[in-house]
Amino acid sequence: MGMTEAILLTIATAATPLLIAALGELVVERSGVLNLGVEGMMIMGAVGGFAAASLTGNPWIGILIAILFGAITSLAFAFLTLSLAANQVATGLALTILGLGLSGLIGEPFVGQAGIKLSNISIPVLTDLPLVGPLLFGQDPIFYMSIALVIGVAWFLFRTRFGLTLRSIGDNHISAHALGIPVLRYRYFAVMFGGACAGLAGGHLSLVYTPQWVENMSAGRGWIALALVVFASWRPARVLAGAYLFGAVSIGQLHAQALGVGVPSQLLTALPYIATIVVLVLISQNVRTTLINTPAMLGRAFVPER
């Protein structure tokens, strides 16, 4: 395998968790809910996935448990913000704090253990093709899931009745309620979908990206995923572009560190975070695109009047 292929492959691996988590959050935000707990759900998925995989020896069970952990964690958020109409920003933060703590506690016995890696797929002949072979036919299974998710989410949101209903709730939950749409039920499902995606992204971290458990291993990726949703102005295809842009930045800085560029390693490590701020500033300058696409009810609690 050539150098270019190797770099492209690692970029895809770095981008995949960001992409999946951001897609999940995109659906949540399209329904008008702002869940800032992506980081917490992601890290719970990472620890649950790693623990399940190393207890059963099967990375697929790990992936399943990761999804489950993410979804269950998000349920706590859903109950507080939807059923109890609690402040979404604060509850999301609480979810992140709780997730980081709980994952540290659950993961303690697994620190330093060798992990089980979900192996890349391999199709005879196709995978051995030059350049396109490993890129198209030789990646980890989650990569293909992430691409399928982009298409699936885009199709769901813009080509199905349920997607239209979900977006209408995000834009005006009072009208939606008046039309007899079960606002809270839709939002519960949306939040749990977001949680499942964040959990899967976490599972990717601990079973594919770096198959081991390290405390706080999500390292702000959940927050970057949140930024990606804004960056993408709530459009799935743009999330794809954004995730790969960030994947490229984080892999680029790793290569720069390995080559020993005459810049402090801390500055290079900070690049993805700096890039996030720069990108957010650039995107929010274009007020029109942002305003058109922002779900109007984002972050507002819905209390049914009767």
């Binding site: 109890l84 609690a86 402040n87 709780l98 997730g99 703590g101 540290g104």
Partner: peptide, 24 residues
């Protein structure tokens, strides 16, 4: 584990927010 402290802090915020509903 010393991680228990973080869990406690998260739980406190969670339940305090849940109980805000009782005020509002």
């Amino acid at each position: 584990s010393d991680k228990v402290a973080r869990v406690f802090q998260g739980l406190i915020l969670f339940f305090v927010l849940a109980c805000d509903t009782l005020i509002l």
